[in-house]
Design a protein around this nucleic acid. Structure first.
Length: 354
DNA sequence: CATGCCGGGAG
DNA sequence: CTCCCGGCATG
């Protein structure tokens, strides 16, 4: 399964799991794609993280989205180690969350729209990604929503609607702003079925100095230096078609969420064409389920002999006899007990293969 | 004829 | 599953 991603915002929306108190990070992607990375403190004890993330997402938006469970770290690796490694390796332009690193996605990334590019350039003014890793992991794993960083940091809420740079100090404020300005609803209208589209992000604003190692994941200047609307609510044609391309015939959020996403292999490649800390995710490859070895028609043919696909004797179709001497020939009938089991059962020899 | 082994049972 | 064998194809 390949999931194409245009790119993701550098500032994940954070939410805390009410059950395990781990931090959830929602990376908002260009247009309406959302990829969710769930970082749990105790992943083993939280089997339902995908479901939980899906629930949160559903309440966030009705837009089409891709549920993306990050790979579970191996027993020898803690989440922190995994993250640190992946983060530091991002300097070389390669993110990998999979211990058995393999299968680089081959599918080319979709073209970025102009809007996307400009947005990215704006947001890529941070430092180099090779900075203090502990800072980033701190960001990821410390208190789910650190209200303050030092005493100069202030949490603000930034509207992500296109061409709207509104920043307010409270979430309710930004919601009211979105509801009234962008959604054209009355602020008092009771619209609480969870289907409302609020696009804003929580940002931390450094009130004095702008140079900080964490600039990779947080805005570095007040108000204006925040990420441009990377997640514009109006659904563009590009994103729609892209979405279809990615998910085949899937077209509903619910159907996507109901899919049990495979979680074995996650491969993320970052592109640093725009330099720096912005997590620019291009392609995600997720391991796929094993197909049943036996095709269905074989089973059917047991009950309906006619359905049997043409296996019998198209003359000359039979494979030529292998060169190797098999158990029967090697040991002879008298030492039949020395044959491999396959030979004893008159199956294809497993000891002397061709 | 000797071999190799597929397809199809039985337990 | 494991184990066995009819029967066909090949050399």
């Amino acid at each position: 399964k390949h999931v194409h991603v245009l790119f993701c915002s550098s500032h994940p929306y954070r939410e805390m799991c009410t059950r395990c108190r781990s931090s959830l990070f929602f990376f908002f992607f260009f247009s309406r794609f959302v990829i969710v990375c769930v970082f749990s403190r105790n992943p083993s004890g939280h089997a339902d993280k995908e479901v939980m993330a899906a629930t949160v997402l559903t309440s966030l938006s009705t837009s089409p989205l891709v549920l993306y469970p990050s790979s579970v770290p191996t027993a020898s690796k803690t989440w922190k180690e995994v993250l640190s490694a992946s983060y530091s390796s991002s300097t070389s332009g390669n993110w990998s969350w999979d211990a058995s690193d393999q299968s680089v996605p081959s599918t080319p990334s979709p073209p970025l729209s102009k809007d996307a590019n400009t947005g990215f350039l704006h947001s890529a003014q941070g430092d180099d990604a090779s900075e203090d890793v502990s800072e980033s992991t701190h960001f990821m794993f410390e208190d789910p929503i650190p209200r303050k960083r030092k005493n100069s940091m202030k949490v603000m809420f930034k509207c992500l609607w296109k061409n709207c740079e509104k920043v307010l100090s409270t979430s309710s404020g930004i919601q009211r702003h979105i509801r009234t300005v962008h959604l054209g609803r009355n602020s008092d209208s009771d619209y609480s079925d969870g289907e409302e589209d609020f696009y804003y992000s929580e940002i931390e604003v450094n009130m004095d100095s702008l140079t900080e190692g964490l600039s990779s994941l947080t805005p570095t200047s007040p108000t204006t230096a925040g990420p441009p609307p990377i997640f514009p609510p109006p659904l563009s044609d590009v994103s729609r078609s892209e979405y279809v391309g990615v998910n085949g015939s899937q077209s509903h959020t619910s159907s996507l969420l109901s899919q049990s996403a495979p979680s074995t292999l996650c491969h993320i490649r970052t592109d640093h064409a725009y330099q720096g800390p912005v997590t620019h995710v291009r392609t995600v490859s997720i391991g796929e389920k094993r197909q049943p070895a036996v095709p269905s028609h074989a089973t059917v043919s047991k009950n309906h002999a006619l359905v049997t696909p043409a296996t019998k004797s198209a003359p000359g179709t039979r494979k030529p006899r292998g060169e190797a001497k098999k158990c029967r020939k090697v040991y002879g009938m008298e030492k039949r007990d020395m044959w491999c089991t396959a030979c004893r059962w008159k199956k294809a020899c497993q000891r002397f293969t061709d």
